[in-house]
C-alpha cells in the first residue's frame, strides 16, 4: 500500500482509534471485572469472588432468571430456526425467481423491518395481536420474534446465493437431476454457509431483543432481557453484571462461530 493512502499516516489516526476503542469496550470491561467483585456494592472493589455467579444460580432471584433463560433460549432456537427456513425459501425465490416485476419491492419488504425503528414495530405488533384477540404470553413473543428475525436470517443467505451461478443447477439438470434434486444436491449445500450465518444472526437478535418482547409479552412471562430490566429497576446488584457477562461470553462465542462459518468454504 502506498504511503499516501494508508490511513495509518493520517493525522490523529491513532488517537481517534484509541478513543473509539475506549468508548466501545471500556463499559464491557468494567461490567466483566465487577461481575467478579466480592463486594455488595457496584462501585467499590472488594476483591475477587465468584459469589455473584453463585447468586445467579442459587440466590433469591435464581428461579426467576432460570425461567427467563429457558424462555429466552427456547424462543431464540425456535424463532431462529423458523425464520431461517422462511428466509431460505424467500432467498431462493427472490434470487432464483427470474426477473419478475415485484422483485425489488419484495426485496425491500423483506428487509424493511431492519430499517424501521424497533419501537414502531413493537407497537404495530402489539396492536396486531390485540386486534386479532391473541392473549399475550409465550406464544406472542415467539411469533413476534419469528417475524422480526426473518430479515436478519435473510441477508447472509441472499449474499451467499448471489455468489452461486445458476449454471451449477443447469449442469445438474443437464445431468438428469430433477429440479428438486438439483436444489437438494447442489444449491442447498452451496447455500449452507449462508444459512448457518443467518441462523446464528437470528438467534443472537432474538436472544437480545428487549423492546418488542417487552411490548408483546404477557404478565409473568419473562425473557432474560426483560427479567434483567425488571431486576435493575429494583436496584442494580452485581448479580446483573454476572448475567451480563455470561450473555456477553455467549455472544462472543456465537460471533466467533459466525465468523468462521462465513470464512468456511465447502468448495475446498
Amino acid at each position: 500500500m502506498s504511503v499516501n493512502t494508508d490511513v495509518k499516516t493520517y493525522t490523529g489516526f491513532r488517537a481517534m482509534t484509541l478513543v473509539c476503542m475506549f468508548i466501545l469496550y471500556a463499559p464491557l470491561i468494567v461490567v466483566t471485572a465487577y461481575s467478579f467483585n466480592a463486594s455488595e456494592s457496584i462501585t467499590t472493589w472488594g476483591g475477587w469472588s465468584l459469589r455473584w455467579y453463585v447468586d445467579v444460580f442459587s440466590g433469591p432471584e435464581s428461579a426467576k432468571f432460570q425461567q427467563a433463560a429457558v424462555n429466552s433460549f427456547s424462543i431464540a432456537i425456535i424463532a431462529a430456526t423458523t425464520a431461517t427456513a422462511i428466509a431460505t425459501a424467500a432467498a431462493t425465490a427472490i434470487v432464483r425467481g427470474g426477473k419478475y416485476r415485484l422483485r425489488t419491492p419484495s426485496l425491500g419488504l423483506i428487509t424493511l423491518p431492519i430499517m424501521v425503528p424497533e419501537i414502531v414495530l413493537a407497537v404495530a405488533t402489539l396492536i396486531f395481536f390485540n386486534s386479532i384477540g391473541f392473549t399475550r404470553g409465550y406464544m406472542t413473543i415467539l411469533v413476534a420474534h419469528i417475524a422480526f428475525c426473518i430479515p436478519f436470517a435473510y441477508l447472509p443467505i441472499q449474499a451467499r446465493m448471489q455468489g452461486i451461478e445458476d449454471t451449477f443447477e443447469h449442469a445438474a439438470m443437464d445431468l438428469y437431476a430433477t429440479k428438486a434434486q438439483a436444489f437438494r444436491r447442489i444449491l442447498f449445500p452451496l447455500m449452507m454457509p449462508g444459512i448457518i450465518s443467518g441462523f446464528l444472526l437470528a438467534f443472537i437478535v432474538s436472544l437480545d431483543d428487549f423492546i418488542i418482547t417487552n411490548f408483546v409479552k404477557g404478565a409473568g412471562v419473562e425473557t432474560l432481557p426483560t427479567a434483567i430490566f425488571g431486576s435493575v429497576k429494583q436496584g442494580l446488584k452485581p448479580n446483573i453484571m454476572a448475567i451480563s457477562t455470561m450473555l456477553l461470553s455467549l455472544s462472543v462465542v456465537m460471533v466467533t462461530i459466525s465468523y468462521f462459518v462465513s470464512k468456511w468454504d465447502n468448495t475446498k
Binding site: 443447469h170 449442469a171 439438470m173 445431468l175 468448495t267
Partner: peptide, 20 residues
C-alpha cells in the same frame, strides 16, 4: 422435454463443476 429427460449432456463454457 425438460433438460433432465434429454439424453444429451453439455460441457459448459465455465465448466460448472460442482464446487462442493
Amino acid at each position: 422435454l425438460p433438460p433432465h429427460k434429454r439424453p444429451v449432456n453439455t460441457v459448459f463454457q465455465n465448466y460448472a463443476l460442482f464446487p462442493h
